[in-house]
């Protein structure tokens, strides 16, 4: 824009990392397909949330965990260029391995000198099968990991909600329970927009009372 002085507003990077459960149980009743669908659905809104926050440059990555953990998208990708390749199931629930993978990226470097709070979003349907506590401690030991905005989505009743609550690290926060595809879409969308908003333009007490579209007492008949 050359009619007015000054360039674009200065911004800080906002690193968003998905940690996705790809254990064998996620293949039951097509849950993994629902997860792929929900993330794709959330991309346009994630892009909108980024557009609404000019002081943040949102970059997204994804880790999958099953037997071990892998980077599904290793490169921090600007959300405007973010596309989703389906994740697939392959074994156990090595969430600890995923935590360690994330922790390695939450030091400076590779993190930049200055940034907004990163967002760590865990989605799981079961019980971790490895030493997740040690992985979580590794995240907590990094300067960016301990400051991260954390979101946890429990898919169905078998998810280890008390473990996810420990990951959240805030007694006032609860994992979001998604019991059907519609709730999962809403939960993923919430995680990818509200968490971005909280990290980039915090409101006073905003973190303590996250507003979720899902009320915890929601009784929907539509069960997996």
């Amino acid at each position: 824009m050359s009619e007015i002085p000054g360039g674009r507003m200065a911004s800080r990077p906002l690193h968003f990392i998905w940690l996705l459960d790809c254990s064998g149980s996620m293949s039951i009743n097509g849950k993994i397909g629902e997860l792929n669908f929900a993330i794709r659905e959330a991309i346009p809104e994630m892009q909108q949330a980024a557009r609404d926050n000019p002081a943040a440059s949102l970059v997204v990555r994804a880790i999958t965990f099953a037997s071990g953990a892998d980077w599904h998208i290793a490169e921090p990708t600007p959300v405007e260029q973010f596309t989703w390749d389906d994740v697939h199931t392959y074994g156990g629930t090595d969430m600890g391995a995923a935590f360690r993978l994330a922790a390695a990226e939450l030091r400076t470097p590779p993190m930049p000198e200055r940034a907004l709070r990163p967002v760590l979003a865990v989605v799981s349907d079961g019980q971790p099968t490895d030493d997740w506590r040690s992985g979580l401690r590794e995240i907590d030991a990094t300067p960016w990991g301990k400051r991260a905005v954390r979101v946890a989505i429990a898919i169905g009743d078998d998810a280890d909600r008390s473990m996810l609550k420990e990951f959240l690290g805030n007694p006032e926060l609860e994992p979001i329970l998604a019991k059907n595809p519609k709730q999962l879409v809403a939960a993923i969308r919430w995680a990818s927009t509200v968490a971005v908003k909280n990290a980039s333009t915090p409101t006073v007490e905003g973190d303590k009372h996250p507003t979720s579209p899902l009320s915890s007492t929601d009784q929907d008949e539509d069960v997996w």
């Binding site: 000054g6 674009r8 200065a10 200055r114 940034a115 907004l116 915090p202 973190d207």
Partner: peptide, 26 residues
């Protein structure tokens, strides 16, 4: 100020010293 200056009025050298711009920093 944002509209006319395209910058926040309190984000100068002191803000650059802050690594993580979180609620405590703000």
């Amino acid at each position: 100020f944002l509209l006319l200056m395209n910058h926040h009025p309190f984000e100068g050298a002191l803000a650059l010293r802050i690594r993580c711009m979180d609620e405590a920093a703000k």
